[in-house]
Nucleic acid binder design. Sequence first.
RNA 1: UGCGGGGUAGAGCAGAGGCAGCUCGUCAGGCUCAUAACCUGAAGGUCAUGGGUUCGAAUCCCAUCCCCGCUACCA
Length: 526
Amino acid sequence: MSKFYITTAIPYVNARPHIGFALEIVLTDAVARYHRLKGDDTWFLTGTDENSLKNVQAAEKEGISTAQLVERNAQYFHDLRDLLNLSFDDFIRTAAEARHFEGVAKLWQAADHNGDLYKKTYRGLYCVGCEQFYTEDELINGLCPEHLTRPDLVEEDNYFFRLSRYGDKLLELIESDQLRIEPRTRKNEVVSFIRRGLEDFSVSRSTRRAKGWGVPVPGDPDQVMYVWFDALGNYITALDYASEGPLYERYWLDNPNRVHVIGKGIIRFHAVYWPAMLLAAGVPLPTTIFVHGYVTVEGEKISKSLGNVIDPRDVVQKYGVDAVRYYLLREIPATEDGDFSTERFIRTYNSYLADQLGNLLNRVVNMVGRYYDGVIPAPRDYTPAEQGLLDLAASLPGRVDVAFERFRPDEAITAIWELVSAANKYVVEVAPWTLAKTRAAGGPDGAAAEARLATSLYSLAEALRLVAHYATPFIPASAEGVCRQLGIELDPSGDWAHITQWGGLAPGARVQPGGVLFPKLEAPKA
RNA sequence: UGCGGGGUAGAGCAGAGGCAGCUCGUCAGGCUCAUAACCUGAAGGUCAUGGGUUCGAAUCCCAUCCCCGCUACCA
């Protein structure tokens, strides 16, 4: 048994969650659930990033307080827990929690004591209407793209972080995989970025410009922290870094697996800024950063102006939570961009869940009912016909483990579904309905047929038990549903070697026909 | 501009010197336990293009054309 700490990025709360964040959090959930299944001491954190000036502006527009606005919007994200059947252990809100304010202040001070924070005049092009800075190339003909006015050249004292000090150290850690960045192409990106030389970056804003919203800089009431210390710090403040409490000890200090799951757009902040900040503060670094791709919708980038933003609530309501989880985990390759298309969604669901798994369960439960009065029989001698199933089952623990080690749930599912497919083939090969007829005829042939029939139905039920357990991280509710119909329960012991061993199903279980687990979806109109 | 990844069947992808594969889709057949599901078989590819190395190249080398990511304070 090992330990495992895993986090998602914390999203801005200025809009409802969309399908892209659903991908990240479902992906993280599947990995966390897998580690729990294996008996690892697992902690899964998510939360919301609330200390942004944009929230202040949005609240003003709506005529409510900023605290009210972020609280309401944070709820949308917390609601994903039920909606997507998530298993996070903790949810941190950066604007609302003392542990966060205190932890971030401590992190700041530690970096400061190390001499890595200093004050410098920041000069930038500031649009009063937007209340934000623009870089030259963001402007259109030198004008603010939003208001088409000429931005002011504003000077302001801010604190800067000495990132420039840490290039060599970061390179060493990343190239040696002490800080592992997956997939490899993302690691290359980061390495080549660092090689080009690192510049210090600004880590505070004037309190006035931030309208007083944010975490105050310790000892300087005129400044609040900018997003870096504040938002990135959540990964340890949520573990009570402020007091270096038991969670911090258990999941950060004394744990070889500290994993951040992030989208490709924020890799630099997590793979460069954040580790450097931790080095400055004398805090251990994360061990792994996994970078996933983005979701496109019907082949198009998600964007508000295109109006193709998908709310996970809508798809879950329409198709069910496990259908959505399955699609995200299997059809979107974790390391690449992947497309969310209704047509493909329905095809995937119908083929893998309804036709292959659901139908297999149905036929097995039905045959046990018909030929053994609903009681799963004990197997007799295994023959070459079963060998394929047994060999495949024996290969799965290793293959699934490798897949998760690489953060590739899609590969794990593909491997698991080979067992579903093999079981469907096996049904046709042994043709239990023919055996049942021979059995009914009696005589020595009938006795032999009885043995074959018992062995085959047991083997099929056992294959389904294994599939259900392997499928738990991906489609937890349906995995339970499979077990319920088999008349057994998911094994919560965490004894993975035992769970995945062929023969774990105790004969004598009474199947519970429970109707269709995955009702087929109407094919999209051609 | 530089760095990185990629272009393989209608779609999505695997293969990294030795008969071009997988899933979905399409077509034909089989089966009747099952959700018209399942099983078997078939059709479908100039492996982006041009050249080279090799007995042999999707695979290695050179060139070209496309696509995508990164190219800093933008979560």
